[in-house]
């Protein structure tokens, strides 16, 4: 178990973060270089003001017509994405590990709160799963890969929750949790989880088109 522990919390962490950071940079550089080579006109329409106007509306819950049309989904989506970042970044155990390695630390969430937020993320994932199965318009466009990426995102939280409570075979769950987190990081640049990178660009372009050319709202 020591060698497994050392491997997944040592070299594998470097690999995961390395692939995540390099992968994200790679995807962004490829995107921008391809745009400048094949569709440079996009840059001539991009406009900071209109981009921010559009992004601003879409990152605020209920600020767009479509968010208001789906109140439950809107709440779930926003809560999910906020917790998705909040929990891992401000989790005490994560900060403790970083602190031990590099003497860098920051404020942590109380474990009880983090636990509740973890359950929230898991519940949101279940909501997305049920929606995928039950809503005809979502089911129609669902591929196995959609379940896979949902599982990739849910796994670190499920294993993290079980590991924290030390249910079901503690040391194995700990290792699974670390591996699940690393898989998610690695998957982000190379799956549709890359919407984390690209959504801001697609939104900004549409915002710029609507603001600058179409003189209309896009929300």
């Amino acid at each position: 178990m020591h060698s497994v522990y050392s491997f997944v919390t040592g070299p594998m962490v470097w690999v995961a973060f390395g692939v995540f950071v390099a992968g994200c940079l790679f995807r962004l550089v490829v995107l921008l270089s391809q745009v400048s080579r094949k569709e440079p006109f996009i840059f001539s329409y991009m406009n900071l003001k209109w981009s921010l106007r559009s992004i601003g509306h879409w990152i605020v819950p209920f600020a767009t017509v479509n968010w208001r049309r789906h109140p439950v989904l809107t709440v779930v989506t926003f809560v999910f994405h906020i917790c998705l970042f909040l929990v891992p970044i401000f989790l005490l155990s994560h900060i403790v590990l970083v602190d031990e390695a590099w003497s860098i630390s920051w404020a942590a969430l109380p474990d009880g709160l983090a636990d509740a937020l973890t359950l929230t993320v898991i519940a949101c994932c279940l909501f997305f799963l049920v929606r995928r199965i039950r809503s005809p318009e979502v089911k129609f466009v669902t591929y196995p890969s959609d379940y896979v990426i949902l599982a990739i995102v849910a796994a670190p939280f499920v294993t993290g929750f079980l590991a924290y409570h030390q249910w079901f075979g503690y040391p194995v769950m700990f290792i699974l949790h670390v591996i699940a987190g690393e898989i998610m990081l690695i998957a982000i640049p190379f799956t549709r989880l890359s919407h984390m990178l690209f959504a801001v660009f697609t939104r900004a372009y549409m915002g710029s088109e609507f603001g600058g050319v179409r003189k209309a709202k896009d929300w």
């Binding site: 995107l31 479509n66 979502v138 466009v141 959609d146 660009f201 697609t202």
Partner: peptide, 30 residues
Amino acid sequence: PRFKTYVETCIHCGLCSEACHYYLSHDNDP
């Protein structure tokens, strides 16, 4: 890249459905 990004960024959420008059007129036929 615009085409590629559109295809790869779509998270298959179906939130565009209710925008379409065909969809609404066909009793939400996906």
